[in-house]
Computed example of a mutant assay.
Amino acid sequence: MNIRAVIADDERLMREQLRARLAEVWPELEIVAEAKNGIEAVELTTQHRPDLVFLDIRMPGMTGVEAARQIGQLAAGDDDWDGCEIVFITAYDQYAVEAFEQGVVDYVLKPAERERLALTVERIRKRLAQRAASNEAPPVAGPDMQQLLQKLALQLNPGSAPQRLRWIQATVGQSIQMIPVDDVLFFISDEKYTRVQTATIEALIRKPIKELLEELDPNQFWQIHRSTLVNTQAISGVTRDLRGRQLVSVKGHHEKLEVSRSFTGLFKGM
């Protein structure tokens, strides 16, 4: 299997060292591009659609954590690309390493020593092979990744905990109503509006899915499609249709919500 990768680090020497070490321990890996910052990393990922992106956590302008979030949104919105594995490049930090070892992403410790990198590469290759065998997309846009990114963002910027959205101010007919977030069954977006669906109300807001993702609790609301967020507390079941697509049923509503391929891993075993 030909694996393609992008490397992103604001230090040129670190990029060169990582490229050289990867050539030693993973000679068949193809480095298709190198980025000097997070913005370039997102642009190059958009251009090349690699299987793997190495992201330095601390970069000026846009951190690796912010870049990973953007790449997740890119994968969620692209029907022709399932996304990529994320590997963070970091100086030793016990808290971060413990977070990485939850298995959502992998990491490379600076400096990239050959023996340590070989262990990381072994884990990455095994993960890629398992996903290929199960035809499962990487979890780059899944709730586990979102939780990890929020945890790492807090570590980079202590005290910057996001304010969770508790109420939705939405248009219902000719009036504006305040809808408790806990009452929302799901959100579905089109090009201009996002539909807010409760058991009794259908309303419209102008806030896109991307902004909602940043403001809602990722433990409560899962993205299951580039245009759909569902309240996990409202999920009553998951079935498959004749085409093999996963469909989510919600309590108190007849509509079934399609799960795109990028998010099928959320409902393993179905």
Rank of each mutant, 00 (worst) to 15 (best):
P27G: 03
E28D: 15
E28A: 14
E28K: 12
L29Q: 06
L29M: 09
E30A: 09
I31W: 06
I31V: 07
E34S: 11
E34T: 12
A35Q: 09
K36L: 06
K36N: 13
K36M: 08
N37C: 01
N37G: 10
G38S: 04
I39K: 10
A41S: 01
V42N: 11
L44Y: 14
T45H: 07
T46C: 12
Q47W: 10
H48V: 01
H48W: 12
R49K: 13
R49S: 05
P50L: 00
V53Y: 06
L55T: 00
D56L: 05
D56V: 01
I57V: 13
I57G: 11
P60L: 01
P60M: 07
P60Q: 06
G61Q: 11
G64V: 06
V65W: 03
A67K: 06
A67D: 01
A68C: 08
R69P: 07
I71K: 07
G72H: 08
G72Y: 02
Q73A: 13
L74T: 12
L74R: 05
G77I: 01
D78N: 15
D82R: 15
G83R: 03
G83I: 00
G83A: 00
C84Y: 01
C84W: 01
E85K: 12
I86N: 00
I86C: 03
I86Q: 07
F88Y: 15
F88S: 05
F88R: 02
I89F: 01
I89L: 07
I89K: 04
T90R: 06
T90E: 01
A91D: 04
Y92K: 01
Y92V: 00
Y92Q: 03
D93C: 00
Q94L: 11
V97G: 05
E98L: 11
A99V: 12
A99K: 14
A99S: 13
E101V: 00
Q102Y: 15
D106I: 07
D106G: 09
K110D: 06
P111M: 07
P111T: 04
E115I: 15
E115W: 15
L117V: 11
A118E: 13
L119I: 10
L119A: 14
T120Q: 08
T120I: 04
V121H: 05
E122N: 09
I124G: 04
I124H: 12
R125F: 03
R127K: 15
R127V: 00
L128N: 13
L128S: 12
E136W: 07
E136G: 05
A137E: 09
A137Y: 14
A137N: 08
P138R: 05
P139S: 02
A141V: 02
A141Q: 08
P143T: 00
P143H: 10
M145H: 04
Q146Y: 04
Q147W: 13
L148T: 02
L152M: 12
A153G: 09
A153Y: 08
L154D: 14
L154Q: 15
Q155F: 12
L156G: 03
N157K: 09
N157P: 05
P158T: 04
